[in-house]
């Protein structure tokens, strides 16, 4: 089985496809129900961000092994407008879409590691990892 798979995000339906893929991989890796919910939710948030702000992009799910510990890596990549002020979007309660403002800080709390790289006019690349304890 390949340890990497991805979903192109173009429509709202692709958000559902992305989180289903993530949930299946999380289940196969042996994550418990709470972590499965955390991973699925994080993917849903990231996929929705792509759909809302970049129009299209890609969610990639990878299995990881580091120092004998398994994990799951979510990569959310798009070629959208980029994020002008990362500090601001990482603040709790900041949202430009009129959602509940959970957004990226929420995703960061759900996962173990969180990295974001963004360039104005070129796109955004977010990597979030959850380790199997």
């Amino acid at each position: 089985m390949s340890n990497q798979s991805s979903v192109e995000i173009q429509t709202e339906w692709d958000i559902v496809a992305a989180r289903q893929l993530g949930r299946n991989v999380a289940k196969e890796l042996g994550f418990g129900t709470v972590d499965q919910a955390r991973i699925t939710t994080a993917i849903s948030e990231l996929a929705r961000n792509i759909y809302l702000y970049a129009g299209q992009g890609r969610i990639e799910i990878q299995r990881l092994t580091e120092n004998g510990i398994n994990g799951i890596l979510i990569i959310a990549a798009d070629n959208g407008p980029g994020i002008p002020d990362i500090r601001k979007v990482m603040e709790d309660g900041f949202s430009t879409s009129g959602g509940l403002g959970a957004g990226l800080p929420g995703v960061k709390r759900l996962m173990d590691d969180f990295k974001i790289e963004t360039t104005l006019g070129e796109g955004t690349d977010i990597r979030a990892t959850k380790w199997l304890r």
């Binding site: 129900t33 709470v34 499965q36 919910a37 955390r38 939710t41 948030e45 709790d92 309660g93 509940l100 403002g101 959970a102 800080p105 929420g106 995703v107 709390r109 759900l110």
Partner: peptide, 14 residues
């Protein structure tokens, strides 16, 4: 609401 759902909601900040 399932425990896993409640925990994720709280961690999301909702």
């Amino acid at each position: 609401i399932q425990p896993a759902v409640a925990i994720t909601l709280i961690e999301l900040g909702i």
